[in-house]
Design a protein around this nucleic acid. Structure first.
Lengths: 254, 254
DNA sequence: AAAGAAAGCTATGCATGCAGGAATGCAGGT
DNA sequence: ACCTGCATTCCTGCATGCATAGCTTTCTTT
């Protein structure tokens, strides 16, 4: 559950507008650098300018759009380097989360939830190759839950805030690359490796091995890096990562 | 220079409102948990409700206020634990910044700026005990510049974003505790230690010793922790840290 | 023909009107 | 005397009007 949904933001005009705009941006309805016209969105989204303005402001904080010097907002443009950067940051933050979670664990019963997510993923991995779509979506959600719970276990509100802020960028999310990679051969193997790392991480947490947990979490994000490398090698697959239309591909640099 | 001033936000109504509201909040004009009335601020700040609403939204992202379930915004309340947490996070992030800065340094000439800040601080430290106020303010600004430049040297936009986001909380800033501590005995010694650590850090950067640089930066924030401990021991001094009125003191916990 | 200037237009930023809802206060009942 | 229910009042969220600033287009001048 995203932080944005903390209140009943899905009923308010502003909340719905925010969700709709995010979806449009990630679907690639707008070109990077394009100026977002409020009036055009008024008739498209059937809401007044005020909630649109509010939603723009929040999207700017999320980093999907940025204020234009001449007023208004333009669609943000990302580079491959930005994605690498975001993944590296996620490694640092999740590593810290893992270390803190291990250090601050008072009762191993606190690991029940995260172990539950892991168990469900374990039972899902064998079949994930067959009925691709449905079970894969379930797997990705569980993966998100697993990583989210890891951060919660760190018991650090600031870290929580920071991670939420970082993963607001679509391709910085833990399973952003997993999906795209699933279209490539060897995906099943990657999943197996990921599960193995999850298990090691859980063991480290249970034994309160903070340093090992941090190292394992850092190593775990390298899977995302390898996935990114694979995805970059086949540009047709890049279209599968959310918000891909906002990414300035290397071939387009001048 | 704060990220918030990226545009001409200090001329626009919203920008001025944001600055004024932040100042009021940090000065302790509102009680934690208090509901912020838009109408009351309209006559107080002489601006319409629209920019006030916008400013509220940004303050909510900064973390100084939070949306109320029943609508509107309330002043956020912080605990001592939150400050410890923020300082610990800053340690992790600045440590990462130091490591990346060392690893990604291509030319030692890039260190000119940060060395300049350090040189100015060095020349200031001896006199900082005498003409307390003026030179101390200058010192704090230089300290902020030093830490900001360190983050820039990491060449990681995401890290930059993350640190900016974290240090939006007033007491999470590098020199938040330095000022309060300056009222206590032994302040000069702390400054000397800090400068020594800065020098070691610069040496590590110059020699591209990433791991050492990370360790030094992490050790450096422990100065903030020690300052916080000292400040907490003398509650009358706590009033000197910015935003202190938003901090739920331990004695007030039921 | 090209460049610059002026005029018109469009979109943003801000102010304010309006309606729905929450909080408060008062009154009545137990 | 306290609790509860109702009414009133205030406030928020949203829509929209208005003025200013920027952009475009066209006309004029060199």
């Amino acid at each position: 559950m995203r932080e944005d949904l903390r209140n009943n933001e899905f009923v308010s005009q502003t909340g719905r507008t925010l969700l709709m705009l995010r979806e449009l941006l990630l679907k690639g309805e707008f070109r990077p650098g394009e100026r977002l016209s409020e009036l055009a969105l008024v008739e498209r989204l059937k809401v007044s300018r005020t909630p649109i303005r509010l939603a723009f402001d929040r999207l700017a904080h999320e980093g999907l759009v940025e204020p234009s010097p001449s007023g208004g907002f333009v669609v943000r443009e990302f580079t491959i380097a930005d994605i690498w950067d975001a993944i590296e940051m996620r490694g640092v933050l999740e590593g810290t989360a893992a270390r803190l979670a291990a250090e601050r664990l008072t009762d191993t019963a606190e690991l029940a939830r995260i172990k539950g997510f892991q168990a469900q993923m374990d039972s899902l991995v064998p079949s994930v190759g067959h009925n691709t779509m449905e079970s894969f979506a379930v797997y990705m959600n569980l993966n998100e839950d697993f990583h989210s719970e890891l951060v919660s276990l760190a018991k650090s509100p600031m870290l929580q805030r920071t991670v939420t802020h970082l993963t607001a960028l679509p391709f910085a999310s833990p399973s952003a690359m997993v999906f795209a990679r699933s279209r490539l051969p060897g995906a099943a193997g990657m999943l197996t490796i990921g599960q193995e790392q999850h298990h090691s991480l859980l063991e480290a947490l249970e034994k309160r091995q903070g340093t090992r947990a941090e190292a394992l979490a850092r190593e775990h994000v390298l899977l995302s890096r390898r996935n990114l490398e694979s995805v970059l090698a086949d540009e047709s697959i890049l279209q599968c990562v959310p918000g891909s239309s906002l990414i300035l591909r290397a071939s387009e640099i001048n």
